[in-house]
């Protein structure tokens, strides 16, 4: 880890955040993206994105469709690596380590930076196997008893334990949409990641299931750093402490959620959060 002075003195004002110290109420700096540019083939999808993500808090990414939110969030655990035509430039650090360094294995990275996807995507296996899969993959559990415990705590943290504890051997695909999404969250947190990325985790769910997941996010952030992409301004306002607004592949503005929604400094942000476009 690089040794950086913990100073806030030369922090420039404006949309670009370059300082390392956390604003009040947030944990320490967890991930830092600097000048990220990204191309799909010849088409550039991200332009000079600079974004800091802090621990013990939720950062929400908002913006009109196609502006590059998913693209950016997928850079944070190198999920874009599997897309042949995708090329990333810039610097992204997790706890000060460059995650695109040649000696970093994306497989290890993804154990530290988990991801929950838009559509619930449990494996066509039992509920137990869904949660146990990742710990087994990374060899985290020595015994069956250990594994049982990991599965149980993950499901408890995901708020699903009470509903499924009697049918752990039944297929995960047989659960309701909301339950499936919570199962996916349990699966993602089963290896104790430091960062959890969520790409529109509630867009396929009804309001009640959404509320459950939002409560869950609120609890999870106590010892996790969460970045969430959402199309719902209310959701961003409810769950996140910081909000980043993307537009046409550029990060327009990032600030405290309350500031973004009440007093944004950019006209485009203003227009978007008041519903004038997007």
């Amino acid at each position: 880890m690089e040794d950086r002075p913990a100073t806030t003195v030369e922090q420039p004002a404006g949309p670009k955040e370059t300082g390392d110290a956390a604003p009040a109420g947030l944990g320490e700096l967890k991930m830092k993206a600097t000048d990220v540019n990204l191309w799909y083939g010849d088409k550039q999808a991200l332009y000079d994105v600079n974004l800091d993500i802090f621990g013990q808090s939720v950062t929400s990414l908002i913006g009109p469709s196609g502006c590059g939110k998913s693209t950016f969030i997928r850079c944070l655990n190198r999920m874009n690596d599997v897309i042949d035509i995708c090329r990333v430039q810039g610097d992204i650090r997790l706890d000060g380590e460059d995650i695109y360094a040649p000696d970093v294995d994306p497989v290890q990275l993804r154990a530290r930076v988990g991801m929950v996807f838009q559509k619930p995507n449990p494996f066509p296996k039992s509920i137990y196997e869904n949660v146990a899969y990742a710990p087994r993959l990374h060899g985290l559990c020595a015994s069956k008893a250990d594994m049982d415990e990991v599965v149980e705590t993950s499901l408890i943290k995901a708020g699903l334990w009470e509903e499924v504890k009697d049918r752990l051997d039944q297929p995960g695909t047989g659960l309701s949409g909301g339950q499936q999404q919570r199962l996916c969250i349990a699966r993602a947190i089963s290896v104790n990641p430091e960062v959890l990325l969520m790409d529109e985790p509630c867009s396929a769910l009804d309001p009640i299931a959404t509320a459950t997941i939002e409560t869950l996010i609120d609890e999870l952030k106590e010892n996790l750093c969460i970045a969430i992409v959402t199309h719902s301004m209310q959701q961003a306002a409810r769950v996140s402490q910081r909000t980043a607004f993307f537009h046409l592949g550029k990060l327009v503005e990032v600030n405290d959620t309350s500031t973004i929604f009440t007093n944004p400094s950019d006209q485009r942000t203003q227009d978007y959060v008041t519903g004038r476009f997007g």
Partner: peptide, 20 residues
């Protein structure tokens, strides 16, 4: 989505193929 799920929890390519 199954592919993403497996890669997302840190399965390697070979594990993705073999397990899923």
């Amino acid at each position: 989505s199954i592919r993403e799920a497996a890669l997302g929890v840190g399965a390697s390519k070979m594990q993705l193929i073999g397990h899923h």
